[in-house]
Design a protein around this nucleic acid. Structure first.
Lengths: 145, 145
DNA sequence: CTAACTGCAAAAACTTTGCACTTTT
DNA sequence: AAAAGTGCAAAGTTTTTGCAGTTAG
C-alpha cells in the first residue's frame, strides 16, 4: 500500500484539479480513505468521520464517495448488502471475501490481458471495469469448523 | 446451452430428490428458468410466472430461487441494483454486463485453476465461489456513441 | 393428516433525492 | 456574490420475514 501521506496528497490534488471544494468534512473523509488499510464500508467511514465531525451526514459520505469514484480515485466493491471502498488501489484487482466473517483482502492475481482481449473480440463487448470477487472462507473461519 | 426439456427434468429431479414439493408455482418457475436463454432477474421471473399464476407472490419467487441456489442448480449474479439468475450454467463463469443497456452475456473465459490454487495458498482463503463480472459496453452501445 | 408452501403485508437495509441553509472560493 | 456542498428527512429499491391460510404428498 502507498504511503498514506502521499496518498492523501494525491486525493486532495485530484479534487483541487477539477475545482471541487475542500470542505472540512470532505478532507476528513479523504484522510480516512488515505490511511485506511482495509476496505471500509460507507457506514464505517460515516461512523469514523462522525467522531470528528458530529454533524456529518450519510448523504455527504455517499456524495463524496461517488465523486471520488468518478475521479477514479476510489474503487467500489459492491457486495450484496452494502458497498466497500478501496482507496489505495483504485485500479481493478481481485478481492477475497470471507463468507462467514466478511473480511475482505486484496488478491494478488494478474489479469491475463491477452485472454481479456480475446474475450472482447468474441463477445463484442468493450471491457471497462473488471470486477473479480472470490467468495470463500478466510483462514480463521476455515479452522473454526 | 442445454436442451430446455432436459434442463427442466434435471431441475425437477433435483427438487424431488430432496423431497421438496412440486407446487404449480414452483414448477412454472422452474420451467421458465429451464427455457430462459438469458439471465433474468427476480422481478422478471416474477412477472413471467404471474402471467400464468396471477396469485404468485414475490416472496415465493425469492424463496424458490434461494432453494435452487442451495441445490447449486441456479447461479446468482448479484449486481448493484438487483440479482439476476443463470439457470443454465450453474457453475461459476464470467459475465459481461453492458453499463448502458444492462445486457448480460456469458463470458467464455477459462478460470486458470493453477493461479486460483496459488491465490488460495498466498491468501489463506479457501475459495468457494468465484464471481467474475466484466462491466463494459456491448457492441450495440459501443456504436451509439 | 401434517409438514411444507404460498401469499400478503410489513419490516429491513442500503442508497438516493429534494431542498433549504451554509460555506468555500 | 455565486456556485458548490452540507444535512435532514423522506422516498426509493430490492430482499427478507412473520404468520395465517392452503396444499402436496
Amino acid at each position: 500500500m502507498p504511503d498514506p501521506a502521499l496518498r492523501f496528497d494525491e486525493l486532495i490534488s485530484a479534487l483541487k484539479e477539477r475545482n471541487f471544494r475542500l470542505t472540512p468534512q470532505r478532507v476528513e473523509l479523504v484522510r480516512l480513505i488515505a490511511i485506511s488499510e482495509g476496505h471500509p464500508s460507507a457506514a464505517q467511514l460515516y461512523a469514523a468521520v462522525r467522531s470528528r465531525f458530529p454533524t456529518m451526514s450519510q448523504a455527504t459520505v455517499y456524495k463524496t464517495l461517488a465523486l471520488l469514484k468518478d475521479l477514479d480515485q476510489v474503487l467500489e466493491i459492491d457486495l450484496r448488502d452494502d458497498s466497500h471502498y478501496d482507496g489505495n488501489r483504485p485500479g481493478p484487482h481481485p478481492h477475497l471475501i470471507c463468507m462467514q466473517c466478511n473480511k475482505i483482502v486484496d488478491g494478488d492475481l494478474e489479469l491475463d490481458l491477452s485472454s481479456l482481449r480475446k474475450l472482447e473480440e468474441t463477445s463484442g463487448y468493450q471491457i471497462v471495469r473488471p470486477q473479480i470477487t472470490f467468495y470463500g472462507l478466510c483462514s480463521d473461519c476455515k479452522q473454526s469448523r
